[in-house]
């Protein structure tokens, strides 16, 4: 070891270099987002809880009970009982989704030919009652309130973001999640 190395070791140069880095972290903006006081907005494609969209014209759900989602589901968590309405449409009499089996993969949303089942951005699903995890048709239809506008844009839309979703505005709060813009709001 040369003299320079001995002096460097004695003066703890390597340790001080490391400490200088944490010292800078000490004084710059902190990245903590204090949940639940502040929440980050998720991106449009975020796969949260499911919702069944209703057709504004008929007032009934857009689902035609084609069973595509129930068949593709890797966890077999969707159960649909179809029936014919008096006007000759096919619609689900019962649509049950067991959230405790769901793995939130998004395949159901992807294959639905009517854009009826979508995955919203709602993720705060914690509950004290296990029965809340068994979503029936009523609850799924009620979940529509969480569906953001991109999920409604019909032709050309896919329950996420390609065509209509491409021009969707950036979710608020997500702007801060890029380095150099400080902590997210």
């Amino acid at each position: 070891m040369g003299l320079v190395d001995i002096v460097k070791k004695g003066a703890f140069v390597d340790i001080l270099r490391g400490m200088s880095v944490t010292g800078t972290y000490f004084v710059v903006d902190k990245v903590t987002v204090e949940y639940p006081k502040e929440k980050l907005q998720t991106y449009p494609r975020f796969r949260g809880v499911h919702a069944l969209l209703t057709d504004p014209d008929t007032g009934d759900t857009k689902c035609v009970a084609c069973m595509l989602c129930a068949t593709i589901c890797p966890s077999q968590c969707i159960k649909i009982v179809g029936e014919q309405t008096p006007d000759g449409r096919s619609h689900p009499a019962g649509f049950d989704l067991d959230l405790s089996r769901c793995v939130f993969c998004g395949l159901c949303e992807e294959v639905c030919p009517e854009a009826a089942i979508v995955m919203t951005r709602h993720y705060e699903l914690a509950t004290l009652d296990k029965n809340d995890f068994y979503l029936d048709k009523q609850k799924l239809v009620a979940n529509q309130v969480y569906a953001h506008k991109e999920l409604y844009a019909i032709p050309g839309a896919d329950g996420g973001a390609t065509d209509a979703g491409r021009s969707a505005a950036e979710p608020d709060g997500a702007a801060g999640r890029v380095p150099g813009q400080g902590a997210a709001r």
Partner: peptide
């Protein structure tokens, strides 16, 4: 999350 919709289990 922006690209796939999930942070961890991308599918």
């Amino acid at each position: 999350e922006m690209l796939t919709g999930a942070r961890l289990t991308h599918s």
